[in-house]
Design a binder for these strands. Structure first.
Lengths: 247, 247
DNA sequence: TCGTTTGTTGCATAGGCTGCAACAGGTGTG
DNA sequence: CACACCTGTTGCAGCCTATGCAACAAACGA
């Protein structure tokens, strides 16, 4: 809508990766050098960028200050709620939000549908790491060290026929999840419940949460749930963008 | 220089104080409502602002993303952070890091203590040159030309009874700071807040930053803060050494 | 020393921003 | 239920302002 502001935002994105000279910024934006300089000067006056001694422009201190204000207000649950709710209304299944919280993954929100069988999950409770779709969607995108730490003392208890009961099998599944971008719980915890899940990325691109659509197999089996993946992808993309993620 | 970018920055500052409606923003900027909305939409697309469910606009989470991507650009802050944090933990007061940034001195970091009264200062904001302890700690060790340039257009506004309201009085204070190596803010800006500060030196021995310990007078008066000087000296020495300074 | 890049300035142009008005949709109030 | 109020959207005319350009001084590094 507003070209100059768009360009300003682009400059911030550019110099946040690494400080740039006025010429580099000009070239990146496709504008004249003097134009880029004028914009950089304005941004610098505002403290959003700052000029380094070597003539490169980087991110300014004021931006860090504003960022901390934003960080204080961070509230994933409230941000994602409307997106999850509309997803729930559309597909009429239960929608979960789970977040990585220290050494556990816990349900942070749950959208239920009226007149449905209640699922066992409860907000605030830790998920079962080796069966829950959300756990796989989150762990698939964590550094190996984090996965190791979380699974170090984890027992791969068998709950159903499809439960993954070894770390090796689980790791293989995480590989699959990582490459295709979504995960399932194929009746691995209760043999009549299955789900699909996708990860949410934060402002740094890290995966710290996931959304799942869960249903009784009798109501919607895996094949049916997979039909919802495009819509689920939309939802997690929207939420990721809303919390500052950019592709 | 660039009107739109200036306005964008002003919007960020405005909504960082508290979320505003498009009408409030328009009024604040003195532009038509549709203009303000167009700017807000652009900022929101970029993630720099964010629309709350009630139609108010606040700071966006992309700011946090940019700041964290750019974290490595703030070398001094990164180096000093652990030292400041442990100092803060020990004395349970607010610790500030301020740097000389072009023609202003701005807060570069702020270590707050849980459950404490919030101080007015914000990262990225310019400090008040004639009252802030960090300003005195930095300016006392600048060449006269730099001090003159920075104070040339500075108004020595009186905020409290102890505010230094003349260049002469300020220069005398800088002399004192220079000889003893530390500075104070004796309730010169807000009559219930005081602090002590010491300079950080770089590899060339130049002072480009300072650290302060700030507290409500009721919690710790100047005499109490001066007890912390040996520890503060340790901190600024450690940080100075870490960036290459040698005594 | 020279070549390169930065920062500055004045100016003409054109492009984009601005204000305006009208309308749809949503919210809350009486 | 009507009403008032605010938000969000759109098309458009006119003017502002951002832009490109060129020339120059200054800083910088090779």
């Amino acid at each position: 809508m507003s070209q100059s502001i768009q360009r300003a935002a682009e400059i911030l994105e550019l110099v946040s990766l690494r400080p740039r000279t006025q010429s580099e910024v000009a070239e990146h934006l496709g504008v004249h050098r003097s134009t880029a300089l004028r914009m950089l000067q304005t941004l610098t006056e505002a403290g959003l960028t700052r000029r380094h001694a070597d003539g490169h422009y980087g991110v300014g201190y004021r931006l860090a200050g504003l960022a901390s204000v934003a960080a204080e207000q961070f509230d994933l649950r409230n941000i994602s709620r409307p997106h999850l709710a509309s997803l729930g209304r559309e597909c009429l299944h239960t929608v979960h939000l789970a977040v990585l919280d220290g050494s556990a993954i816990v349900y942070a929100d749950k959208i239920e549908q009226p007149g449905m069988v209640r699922l066992y999950s409860q907000v605030g409770q830790p998920v079962v790491l080796h069966t829950a779709g959300v756990a796989k969607a989150i762990l698939a995108f964590q550094p190996a060290a984090v996965v190791d730490r979380m699974l170090a003392t984890h027992a791969f208890t068998r709950y159903t026929e499809t439960t993954l009961t070894s770390r090796a099998a689980y790791d293989a599944e995480l590989d699959r999840v990582r490459s295709r971008g979504w995960s399932v719980d194929d009746a691995e915890y209760e043999d009549y419940v299955n789900c699909v899940a996708m990860p949410i990325r934060d402002a740094r691109g890290n995966v710290l949460a996931a959304v799942s659509v869960t249903a009784l197999k009798a109501r919607a089996d895996l094949a049916a749930l997979e039909q919802l993946l495009p819509r689920l992808d939309e939802v997690v993309s929207d939420v990721s963008r809303a919390i500052g993620w950019r592709p």
